[in-house]
Write a protein that binds this DNA or RNA. Structure first.
Length: 552
RNA sequence: UGGGUUAUGGUGUAACGGUAGCACUACAGAUUUUGAUUCUGUCUGUCUAGGUUCGAAUCCUGGUAACCCAACCA
């Protein structure tokens, strides 16, 4: 009984090609422009490109699409490489479109010699004016009929730096009346007297995306060049260059990009969030960047699994954030170490427990035995969560209330006897008695309680800062709302708690550790933490059916 | 008054002319020393109107809706 998992449309294309003997093996590529940080949408593309090659025994190149020197920088190159590796992928080759500038220049010469490219002196406004509109054809530029010799001469001069930015461009000679706007004599080279992060000042003319991408794919023998839907109109041009140049026929296939609820994905919008101070940098844990998710405590496996589950197709989509959170919790539940931390402390005093006594109690580190156990100190005074006590309990309340009994996790059952309030009506202490025979693991008390609570021993507690992150936006699709998307930012996307108490074992937490603070969620150490100032980020909350019930 | 792409439960994604399935979400129940986890169950779907066919989500025709295309960005 072999249950065939159905293939996605890209896998079908690859299998068809392989079965037909079109290729002996496949090569894909991930082609970011090094002008920004990678986000969760890129991870879909990364998983697709690397995943496809891995599944069919092929290879994947990392190629930086660095054809626009004014927006690109090595800082981005480094962060992109780090993010891909963190996700768990390794490229076969690290290439740059700029590696091919000489070859691309030679391709341009070939086109000119074939009478298929010309130098245009028109301004960008003039070019736009003659371009026509989607419903009206364009008109030929007066420079369209220049001779091959003249074009060769002029293009040479462009390369030599004889002209200023914008003075001249090289255009492909195709069809100014084409229904595809991109085929109306697209610009293929422009003049930019700018320093390139890799080629320095060698060039002052740079190829446009359309003249670089397909040919770069071809140079690398990329068999399947996959990209997002908005490039569909470019495919015709992509194929035209490959055909005219008679080079290796790479093929472009398009899929729908990832969109996710409660966030934005466009580079422009993310840049605004950073530049206008709505978040603290590209790796702010509220950002949908890979570095943001990393800092927030996400695991690479959870993101890969998410990309696997969302599938791939050609229709627009808006993926529910809860699926990502599900994948995260699924992973963290099995791997995160359990610990106890009290975020909003109030003191619990066990009146019949011996003064000054400390007992070390055994507590499990994980959902099963694989993560082992640890010993945690217990005593007369404990910090507990303020929200775990109700003076007048709600119905179906299984936590602490006057006269109520609960189990302190891994310790004893206690019964609330009284509580103290200050003049403002705030609870300042809760008094209990404990049942010595109810000790965890050796309970002979016969008492059954519904609630179990986490706690931290007062004299052993370690103070910590805890950063509670929530979704960045209040609405599912901020990009589609009226007005400025920034008006929909969730004002409580970050709540900082300065005086939380955590169990002493947490002083040795490292940046790699993942914790479940029992009953509170998953947390990790933040990179801002120091040895005497612990800072934990909330990665994600636990599922919480109780608070839902309370609201209802 | 152009061209291109896409329409399947709330959200994603399968079914390739032959029983509309899976996951997430939501809801209900069981178990639980985390109101977590785990387990069980429930709700909800083929854009629309015709046509072809024994049989249509799938093929055909006409509508409708959404998205993309007029950067010397990628």
């Amino acid at each position: 009984m072999s249950e065939e998992k159905s293939l996605n449309f890209l896998e079908e294309i690859v299998e068809t090609d392989l079965n037909a003997g079109k290729y002996s093996s496949i090569i894909t590529r991930f082609p970011p422009e090094p002008n920004g940080y990678l986000h969760i949408g890129h991870s879909k593309s990364i998983c697709l490109n690397f995943g496809l090659a891995a599944k069919y025994g092929g290879s994947t190149n990392l190629r930086f699409d660095d054809t626009n020197p004014v927006t690109e920088d090595t800082e981005y190159v480094e962060s992109i490489k780090e993010d891909i590796q963190w996700l768990g992928f390794q490229w076969s080759n690290e290439f740059y479109a700029s590696d091919y500038f000489d070859q691309l220049y030679a391709f341009a010469l070939q086109l000119i010699n074939k009478g298929l490219a010309y130098v245009d002196d028109s301004t960008s406004e003039e070019i736009a004016a003659l371009k026509g509109t989607p419903t009206e054809p364009g008109k030929d530029s007066v420079n369209r009929s220049r001779t091959i010799e003249e074009n060769l001469q002029l293009f040479q001069e462009m390369k030599e730096g004889k002209y200023k930015d914008g003075e001249k461009v090289l255009r492909a000679k195709i069809d100014m009346a084409h229904t595809n706007m991109l085929m109306r004599d697209p610009i293929i080279y422009r003049i930019k007297h700018a320093h390139h992060h890799r080629t320095g000042d060698k060039w002052c003319i740079y190829p446009m995306y359309d003249f670089a991408h397909g040919q770069s794919d071809s140079i690398e023998n990329i068999t399947h060049s996959i990209c997002t839907l908005e490039f569909i109109p470019h495919r015709e041009l992509y194929d035209w260059f490959i055909s005219q140049l008679n080079i290796f026929p790479s093929h472009q296939y398009e899929f729908a990009r990832l969109n996710m609820t409660y966030t934005v994905m466009s580079k422009r919008k993310l840049l605004q969030l950073v530049n206008e101070g709505f978040v603290n940098g590209w790796d702010d844990p509220r950002m949908p960047t890979i570095s943001g998710f990393r800092r927030k405590g996400f695991t690479p496996a959870s993101i890969r699994n998410f990309c696997e589950r969302i599938g791939v197709a050609k229709r627009e989509n808006l993926i529910d954030l809860s699926l990502l959170e599900f994948c995260l919790r699924e992973d963290l539940n099995l791997t995160a170490k359990r610990a106890m931390a009290v975020l909003d402390p109030v003191k619990l005093i066990i009146d019949n427990y011996e003064d000054g006594k400390t007992e070390y109690l055994k507590s499990e580190n994980g959902p099963d035995d694989t993560l082992g156990h640890r010993e945690i100190p217990f005593g007369k005074e404990l910090w507990i969560e303020r929200e775990d006590f109700m003076e007048e309990p709600a119905k179906k309340w299984f936590r602490l209330a006057p006269g109520a009994m609960v189990r302190m996790k891994s310790a004893y059952i206690v019964k609330c006897t009284s509580f103290e309030k200050d003049e403002k009506g705030e609870i300042t202490a809760i008094h209990c008695t404990y049942f010595p025979e109810s000790k965890s693991g050796q309970d002979t008390s016969g008492i059954a309680v519904k609630g179990t609570m986490h706690w931290v021993s007062v004299p052993h507690a370690v103070k910590a800062e805890v950063r509670l992150y929530d979704r960045l936006f209040r609405v599912e699709n901020p990009a589609s709302e009226e007005g400025d998307f920034k008006d929909y930012i969730n004002p409580e996307s970050l709540v900082v708690i300065h005086n939380a108490y955590v169990e002493p074992s947490l002083v040795s937490a490292t940046l790699q550790d993942r914790y479940q603070f029992i009953r509170k969620g998953y947390f990790c150490l933040d990179k801002d933490a120091t040895s005497n100032h612990l800072i934990f980020n909330r990665t994600v909350t636990l599922k919480d059916t109780w608070s839902k019930e309370m609201k209802a």
